[in-house]
Amino acid sequence: MMKKFTVVIISLLTVFNAVASDKEWRTLDPENAILLTLPHGKVVIELAPQFSPNHVKRFKTLAQKGHYDGNKFYRVIDGFVAQGGPEDGSIKDKAISELKIEADFSIDKNWTFTLVQQNDLFAEQTGFKEGFALGKSDKENKAWMLHCPGVIAMARTNAPNTATSHFYITNGQAPRYLDRIMTVFGRVVYGMDHVQAITRTSVIEGDTPVNPKDFTPMVKVQLMSDLPKEQQIRLEIKNTEHPSYAKKLSDRRKRESAFFYKKPPPVLDICQTPVGVRMIK
C-alpha cells in the first residue's frame, strides 16, 4: 500500500512540474527574494539557492538579523560594481566566519538548460536555467553562474574561501573574467535603475575625492517573505524553460527586423539577452 501511495505522489509531482513548465511566467518566490531599500528607491534581488546554497543561506540569515542595515556602498566603480558591507575591521565585520567558495557546481548528462550560445569567449556553452544566466562545460561536467549586469556576488580577499558578508552588484558591462572565481548567488530583477544611481566612490585622476559621508547607505536589507503582504513587491518572471523563450532567443539571433539592413553575425551575448519581468497588481 505504501509503495502505491509513493508512486501516486511521484506521479502527481511529475504532472505538477509539467504544468508549471507550461506557464510562460513564473511567480517570484518571496522566500528567495531580497528587498534592498536605498535612499532613492527599492531594489528586488532574486536569490539562487539551487546554485549557491551556502551563500544564499548566509545572506538571508544576515538580512534577517539586520546585519546590512545602515551599511554603505563603499567601493562603487562606474561600469563595474557597487560593493558594500560593514566597515572593514569592525566588530560586525570580524564576527562573520569565512565561507567556502561556490564558484561552480557538478552536473550530470541529464542536466539541461535553454541554450543561448556555443563557445562564447568564456564558456563552451551559455544558457538560462530558471531565469539565471549560466555557463556550462560538458568536458568538466560543470556549470556556473555568470557575471552579467545586475548579478549579486560575495566579495572576498585573494584566497578563494574568504567570503564573509561583503557583497557587490555588477552595475555595468559584464566582468565575465570573474566567472568561476567568485560566488554569484542571485540577480537584480527590479530596480536596476536605482542600483545605477548609487554614488560612485571612484573618481578620475585629478578630480575631487568623494567624501565617505556621501557614500550611498543601505537603508534596509530584508527578506521579502518577512514583510507584510501589502509591503511586498510581487513580480512575475519569464519562464526561460518555456518553448516561447527558446523561440524568442532564435528570433533575436536572426535579427529579421528591417532595421538591420546589414545583418550582424547570428550570435547572442547572454548578458545582453534580457529575461522579462512584470509586476503583479
Rank of each mutant, 00 (worst) to 15 (best):
L36W: 06
V81M: 07
N71D: 11
H40Q: 09
T37C: 00
V44P: 00
V44L: 07
Q50T: 14
I77N: 02
K57C: 03
T37R: 04
F59M: 14
D69K: 05
G70Y: 07
N71I: 11
D78A: 14
V76L: 07
S52M: 12
R75W: 15
H40E: 07
R75L: 15
N54A: 12
L38G: 01
H40M: 02
L62S: 04
D69C: 08
N71Q: 12
I77L: 13
R75K: 14
A63V: 11
D69S: 12
K72M: 05
F80W: 11
G70C: 09
G41T: 01
N54Q: 13
S52R: 03
H55P: 01
V43R: 00
D69I: 04
N54C: 09
L62E: 09
L47R: 03
K57A: 13
V81L: 06
K42Y: 01
T37N: 00
Y74G: 10
P39H: 00
V43E: 04
I77D: 08
K57E: 15
V43T: 01
Y68P: 06
L36R: 02
V43I: 12
G41S: 02
D78L: 09
F51K: 04
G79C: 08
P39K: 02
Q64N: 12
V43S: 05
F73Y: 13
V76Y: 00
H55G: 07
T61L: 12
G70Q: 08
D78I: 10
T61K: 09
K72L: 08
V44A: 02
Y74I: 14
S52N: 07
G70E: 04
A48H: 02
D69F: 05
H67Q: 15
L38R: 04
F80K: 06
T61V: 14
N54S: 12
F73M: 05
V56M: 06
V44Q: 01
I45P: 00
R75G: 10
R58K: 09
E46L: 05
I45F: 01
Q64T: 15
V81T: 01
K65H: 10
D78T: 09
K57W: 15
H40K: 05
D78S: 14
I77G: 04
H55R: 02
V76Q: 10
V56A: 06
V76P: 03
D78M: 12
N54D: 15
N54Y: 06
H67Y: 14
F59Y: 14
R58T: 13
I77C: 11
T37I: 15
G79I: 13
L38H: 00
A48D: 02
K65N: 13
A63Q: 08
F73E: 08
